[in-house]
Amino acid sequence: MSELDLNNKTSEMLANSEANVKNSKKNFTRPEDEKREVVAPDGSIIEVNPLYDYFSNEKPKEEKPRGGVVEKFLNWARAESIWVLGFGTGCGSIEIPPLVTPRFDMFRYGVQMRPTPRQSNAFIISGYLSVKTLKRVIRTYEQMPSPKYILALGSCTINGGMYYDSYSTINRLDKYIPVDVYIAGCMPRPEALLHGFVKLKQLIKEGKAEKANEYARNFDEYKANQKKIIKDWNMPDYNW
């Protein structure tokens, strides 16, 4: 097959998949994520389904703590080095800069910011969550390595707070992902956030912060709740 033929074939296939999208109205996947056939460099034809090829559809597994002195030591290490994901999901993220600057300086407590979900194990849900963000939060949460902890900031994550009647924001966060520490207030002061970290440390050292396992245990329940409100569920059930 010549190069020109290959190009023609590829563009034809892409056009087909785009036509499929237009025909089926309820389909939320973007054209490039559609299941399609791709011509490999050697001329062979491979079927590609981007949504399922690159992600796992398996359920998460429960990872039991080892127990004993080893686990105690590891828990101490986990507690003294909390890596927070730098994802400001709501207006509470305005109080994150004061936390990393001279006034409040959370580095003293071994709390650091990390930019990618792969390297962080604590997630500050800073305030209200709109459904659009919740979708990203779930994906990010599932990508974080276990054990992982969630700090929910503000009254909006507890019961909806000021936005209890909004069509766009969720009311209770713990219906969708398990929460370790709630920090109440609108918006909570940085001192409250620091106290939240101290509380989280205490929970980790006592071995009580095993919410990632709880998520795995009640996976179906959480997924049902998530699917109820996320209308365009165009992602695999679980991705890591």
Partner: peptide, 21 residues
């Protein structure tokens, strides 16, 4: 700022090893 404690890199190492996933 005060900054991280001196022992932090070692704790970070142990913490990284303790990751389960």
């Amino acid at each position: 700022r005060h900054g991280i404690p001196f022992k932090q890199p070692w704790i970070n190492l142990f913490k990284s090893i303790s990751t389960r996933t």
